[in-house]
């Protein structure tokens, strides 16, 4: 086994950091709705890809990819709230969200076909040179958005009355209601936010990756690992755990072979679950 050069190592660490940020961005909404509303939303990934394709479409019409958020965020917020309302209204199993994934996948395939799609934008090829290392603009944007959203949610939950009420709902919803918290209304709000976060993650996917409908499932395992490792409902958890996983994967790839990378995230998950049982 040949040791990689320092430059390669540095570049690996950086790419681990950036992919970890995307795991965190994808995991944020998943973790919040699972941890706080006890709703495992498997459709979260499909929503993110729907967001990615919409970004691709709007950017193709000449709109700045970042500006597409002005359309996608409110639309996805409404969509998430509507989904929650339907789930609560008909009190159906979370497995329905898996069915929803298949429906969204079929929809994407119908509109954009199964061909690979790559968004052309002014951002894709911009790179900065830091010493011997390169940093791509889309990855930097992903990290910035993941950091900003995670910290904003953390501050919201920690320091505002509504955020504290949200945490109270997570602990004991009926008692929170007895003290005047509108549990249904706040659950709609949080579900809307989670879907909006999926939309933002979609922008990141479109900026950095070639899109295909089947890719929806590629992210599921590792993002779930990041969500569980980070602690359900913890707004900073997915990002921190995502970066830990991303960096470990990148180092594994640099030292051994890329095929070993998936082993890392799940080994980490198993070790943490064994070391700290009862955390989920």
């Amino acid at each position: 086994m040949a040791l990689p050069s320092l430059t390669l190592l540095g570049q690996s660490l950086l790419s681990g950091l950036f992919i970890g940020a995307l795991y965190g961005l994808l995991g944020l909404g998943l973790s919040l709705s699972w941890g706080m509303l006890r709703q495992i939303n498997l459709a979260h990934f499909a929503l993110a890809f729907l967001g990615a394709y919409l970004t691709y479409q709007l950017a193709g019409a000449g709109i700045n990819p970042l500006a597409t958020l002005a359309v996608i965020v409110p639309c996805f917020f409404a969509l998430g709230a509507l989904m929650h309302w339907l789930l609560a209204r008909f009190s159906v199993s979370a497995l329905v969200t898996f069915g929803l994934t298949a429906i969204i996948e079929a929809l994407i395939q119908w509109i954009w076909t199964a061909d690979f799609r790559r968004m052309e934008s002014g951002y894709s090829d911009v790179k900065f040179r830091v010493g011997a290392l390169y940093v791509a603009l889309p990855e930097l944007l992903t990290l910035a958005m993941a950091l900003a959203l995670s910290l904003a949610v953390w501050a919201w939950l920690r320091h505002t009355y509504t955020g504290k009420a949200m945490r109270a709902i997570a602990e004991d919803a009926p008692i929170a209601a007895a003290f005047g918290v509108d549990v249904h209304g706040l659950s709609l709000l949080l579900s809307g936010l989670c879907a909006a976060f999926a939309g933002v993650a979609g922008l990141s996917l479109a900026l950095s990756y070639t899109l295909a409908p089947g890719q929806i499932y590629a992210w599921l395992g590792v993002v779930f690992a990041a969500v569980m490792l980070g602690g359900l409902g913890n707004p900073l958890g997915p990002l921190v755990a995502g970066i830990v996983i991303g960096v470990s994967e990148a180092l594994t790839m640099a030292f051994t072979a890329p095929a070993w990378a998936p082993l890392v995230s799940f080994s980490l998950l198993i070790v943490v679950l064994l070391a700290r049982p009862g955390r989920i």
Binding site: K164, R167, E171, A176, A177, A178
Partner: peptide, 29 residues
């Protein structure tokens, strides 16, 4: 959630505090 506004507050059986939140946050809620 409207009962509280009618002036009714409960100390439930088994207390049912928001255990992970601080004493101050429980009082604020």
């Amino acid at each position: 959630h409207a009962f509280c506004g009618e002036g009714i507050a409960i100390v439930p059986e088994g207390r049912r505090l928001f255990a992970g939140m601080s004493v101050r946050e429980n009082l604020e809620l």
